[in-house]
Write a protein that binds this DNA or RNA. Structure first.
Length: 511
RNA sequence: GGCGGCGUAGCUCAGCGGUAGAGCAGGGGAAUCAUAAUCCCUUGGUCGGUGGUUCAAAUCCUCCCGUCGCUACCA
């Protein structure tokens, strides 16, 4: 019986096209999902698209399309992006699917039956032009006493019937829950913000709208559609078949081990979502982790500046694995990062081509030329061989702990420490000299390096699946011997290795 | 305004009570198996400022300066 692991990306809102931020979240989640699978877990990795709400309705209208047509198109683009980035999702859920609607309505009923939903009126400053509410402090009062939104539109005090969720009664329960589960939200800085927000007092939450139609109808009151956040959050359990909570089914994955989110939506996941679930008597996620944002060449990414990075274009120019690597290597996960073309090229050339790619290439060509491509026996290892092997064998253990903290960049740093040590090792052992003085010793050194590379490549599969597949094949590792648990079985000596070819090309600017 | 984070080598950051660290960039050397990749050595910092606690402070506390985030319905 395998251990379960469930993780999710947010479902992406379809009012715009996918950009590097979406790619980042998905790639990070993918690395974690792949890592857990390599480590023997039964993984359920969920992603998808969020397709309701006024903004989508509007965006479709602006294009003269029906919402259905519009969301189909954009949702497909997100799915294509996921596929091109080789995101290994187990399910791609769309909030316009029937299974999701049923699930949402079931959860709503459950919470309503428990007494946590009531009908009242949403009051606030509403802008007809912007079709949304503004809070008092966002407004400016002009000379004749009228109030103006930041967009310049006039606002009016408006009352709209709305269902409310009794969030206020969950304040203490939530605080207690955070206390009991200190690792519930990461990173720490995000947790502080959240706690101070909750301590400052929670008001009830408006969870339905009557001003537009593009949403899931509230059960028993077809004048209302559910507020997008209620709708969206429920995707995580509708994909598991809620309200069917039979644990012999997909429901066995609940509660999820991780919701990976961007920092702008941490509150919805760490506060509203647990409250909804508690109100419905369901278990709460084990952990919410919020990562940072990317700037581009030092500037905030925005459509108006025109510096939005299309992940697919990046992949087309540099290749998938270098892009995946760069995004996770460049920045401490959880903090903000800056994308720059030069930084990507530096990482790609220095760390992938020079450090790792070249290490593999120099090792394998020596075996090809000096040993007729036959993988040598492990032989009699010296202390320096054993030391290097010991370092590399620690990696899976170190990585496991880091993955559970979502410290992906630390993992890559630790792997690269071993790669640097391996380059030092090959230089100090100088197998090209041993070739003339001690042929047997040369074979031991080269074989040691193959074993080290095999361990490194096994670990790196989660980050760079294609390249590491190629490397493991060159190292003579069977397709079905690539999990962490297979590392105890040494590669079969005496086999003929395929002729080596570079795994990571250097990138040369052509202009 | 309130709450919180951060400010350490040219750049990106680690260290968070006991003689200042890594990677990149810069300088010198070695080697030539390799994608001219690699290895070794090296230049460089009064750890934002101030006052304090301590035998001892980047490391704890005060105040100040700078910067960033959160402060409810904006995926």
């Amino acid at each position: 019986m395998k251990n379960h692991y469930m993780l999710t990306t947010p479902i992406y809102y379809v009012n715009g096209l996918p950009h590097i931020g979406h790619a980042y979240t998905s790639i990070a989640a993918d690395v974690m999902a792949r890592f857990k699978r390599l480590d023997g877990y039964d993984v359920f990795f969920l992603t998808g698209t969020d397709e309701h709400g006024q903004k989508v309705e509007q965006a479709a209208q602006n294009k003269g399309q029906t919402p259905e047509l519009f969301v189909n198109k954009i949702s497909n683009q997100f799915r294509n992006m996921a596929d091109q980035l080789k995101i290994s999702y187990n399910d791609f859920i769309r909030t316009t699917e029937d299974r999701h609607k049923k699930s949402c309505q079931a959860l709503w009923k459950k919470i309503a039956d428990a007494g946590y939903i009531y009908l009242d009126a949403y009051k606030g400053w509403y802008s007809l032009r912007d079709e949304c509410y503004y809070s008092e402090d966002e407004l400016t009062t002009i000379s004749d006493g009228r109030k103006i939104a930041p967009t310049g539109a006039e606002v009016k005090w408006l009352k709209e019937p709305s269902y409310f969720f009794k969030l206020s009664v969950w304040q203490d329960k939530l605080l207690e829950f955070y206390e009991l589960h200190p690792d519930f939200i990461g990173p720490e800085s995000r947790k502080n913000e959240l706690l101070s927000f909750v301590r400052s007092g929670l008001r009830d939450l408006s969870i339905s709208r009557t001003s537009f139609k593009w949403g899931i109808p509230v059960p028993g009151d077809s004048d209302h559609v559910m507020y997008v956040w209620f709708d969206a959050l429920v995707n995580y359990i509708s994909a598991l078949g809620y309200p069917n909570i039979d644990s012999s089914n997909l429901w066995r994955f609940w509660p999820t081990d991780l919701h990976l989110v961007g920092k702008e939506i941490a509150r919805f996941h760490a506060l509203y979502w647990p409250a909804f679930l508690m109100a419905a008597g369901l278990e709460v996620p084990k952990r919410i982790y919020s990562h940072g944002w990317w700037t581009v060449e030092g500037e905030k990414m925005s459509k108006s500046v025109g510096n939005v990075i299309d992940p697919i274009e990046l992949v087309n120019e540099f290749g998938l694995d270098p892009v995946r690597f760069f995004l996770l290597r460049e920045v401490p996960f959880g903090g903000d990062g800056d994308y720059s073309r030069q930084a990507l090229i530096n990482r790609m050339n220095n760390e992938l081509a020079n450090d790792l790619g070249n290490l593999a290439q120099r090792t394998l060509t020596q075996i090809a030329r000096n040993c007729e491509g036959i993988l040598p026996d492990i032989g009699q290892r010296f202390e320096e061989d054993i030391e290097l092997i010991a370092k590399v064998e620690l990696l899976p253990i170190i990585l496991r702990e880091q993955m559970d903290r979502q410290a992906l960049n630390e993992s890559l740093e630790d792997i690269w420490k071993v790669i640097r040590a391996s380059n030092a090792y090959i230089d100090h052992q100088a197998p090209w000299k041993l070739k003339k003085t001690d042929f047997e010793r040369m074979k031991v050194v080269l074989r040691t390096l193959v074993d080290v590379l095999r361990e490194i490549a096994t670990c790196l599969q989660a980050f760079m699946p294609d390249s590491m597949d190629k490397l493991l094949t060159q190292l003579g590792v069977d397709q079905n011997k690539r999990h962490f648990s297979d590392l105890e079985d040494k590669i079969q000596a005496g086999q003929k290795l395929p002729s080596p070819s570079p795994i990571f090309p250097r990138f040369i600017e052509t202009d």
